[in-house]
Design a protein around this nucleic acid. Structure first.
Ligand code: MN
Ligand code: MN
Ligand code: MN
Ligand code: MN
Lengths: 228, 228
DNA sequence: TAAGTAATTTAGATAAATCTAAAAATATTT
DNA sequence: AAATATTTTTAGATTTATCTAAATTACTTA
């Protein structure tokens, strides 16, 4: 007998775990590891094991000792709802309250837990049903659906490749501030001018400007939609 | 040695207690009683005693066993900050997201705990520095200052008295919906036509329309600014 | 003023979320 | 395949916020 999801309520802590497990699932392997979750949430593996047990009981994850966790269909719904709220609030903060894109993640981490489906829908409407947040991350719709065209990390591209900078896959304000300083913005066209084998650093020309040098630590987080 | 307030952080539960104690202080007697707090917060007196102890240690209330609590200057600051956020968010929900005034209190109860002073200031600016929330409650400024002209409950007025309906001193959606149904809105002029001694019910003419009957349970929550 | 009643506090539990230290299981490396 | 290292789980505590039941204090009233 599956539990009724409709009025299932999750604590902030539970929501954060569910979201993190969802993200780690997306980003790769089956069987998300206890340590990976602990790292992400800045908690200890022992705490993660406890919480995973609880989430498994609530059937938002599948879990077998020592085998890692996998998000369930129910869990995916919960995660996408939280992610939807996070990204909508980020849009609100940037578009309406004039925050810079490096200032919004922390605040959205709080706002994503506000419980009111009407609020989420009204906010979405108020913002004009945005498709992406200020960092280019897609915003799931009410049903949890969203589309992402295929992207590659800039670090994976080759010399002479051309593309569109569409997303930053990292929330660190230092990275975002650095991109600001370099005048690199979402939506810019770019071309790979040079790539250093030894350290993976790259020379990139954005919008036909003088090329800039970017280290591998940076380029791995810049997501590019290839063109031609 | 007084504790540094600047980076004092309070839990949601603590903030709710502080806010409630502040409100009860305003609404009357010195020495807010354990039971009054328990009623307001839908908890048990034993829980209140525990929490009061904690708040006394943090010096946001003054407390002596069996003597009730009084909010301290520090506590007042914390309370006013939370109240400011609550009311600003209510304005946002009504003005920007088109909520009705009876739908916003619950959601504001959550939003008032979001921690970000920049957010509060930006929101205030976005809303045009409103002086009152959708129920007519005054919004404290950044320094916690606000002004209320003198008001009386409608129930305290006499036949032939005239005034301006400026505030509803109750969040219950049923009351607010009833006022909607009766087409009674903030800012309306009114005149007391009749007052029944037995039950305190009143006949009131709003904006020179056909008088309406209102029970004491209603009139005690309608705050009036007297004119002439 | 002495009972009786009401309000408040204490004592002892519980649930949630976290931790440290130790044990157990799994993975990796000689 | 052992030995070693890493990961994960268990055991046992801690903190916060809550509760019930019992004890204590204060207030009312006869
Ligand atoms: Mn974010
Ligand atoms: Mn984002
Ligand atoms: Mn309210
Ligand atoms: Mn209000």
């Amino acid at each position: 007998m599956p539990k009724i999801l409709i009025d299932m309520n999750f604590s902030f802590a539970e929501e954060n775990y569910i979201k993190t497990i969802y993200h780690l699932s997306q980003a790769g392997e089956v069987g998300v590891s206890t340590n990976a979750i602990a790292d992400q949430l800045h908690t200890k593996p022992a705490s993660v094991t406890d919480m995973i047990r609880k989430l498994a009981n609530k059937e938002v994850v599948d879990y077998q000792k020592y085998q890692g966790v996998n998000i369930s269909e129910q869990g995916k719904k919960v995660a996408l709802e939280v992610i939807r709220k996070h990204r909508l609030w980020e849009v609100f903060l940037v578009e309406k309250l004039k925050f810079n894109w490096d200032e919004v993640h922390e605040i959205a981490e709080q706002l994503e837990h506000i419980r009111s489906s009407i609020l989420t829908e009204r906010l979405d409407e108020f913002l004009g049903y945005p498709k992406a947040d200020p960092h280019g991350d897609p915003i799931p719709d009410k049903e949890g659906k969203f589309e992402t065209g295929p992207t590659v990390a800039l670090s994976e591209m080759s010399v002479d490749d051309i593309g569109l900078f569409v997303m930053v896959a990292n929330d660190d304000p230092h990275l975002l501030q650095y991109l600001d300083k370099m005048k690199i913005k979402l939506g810019m066209k770019l071309k790979v001018i040079d790539k250093v084998v030894f350290d993976g650093s790259m020379q990139i020309s954005f919008s036909n400007e003088t090329p800039v040098f970017l280290s591998h630590q940076i380029t791995q987080h810049l997501m590019i939609r290839k063109v031609a």
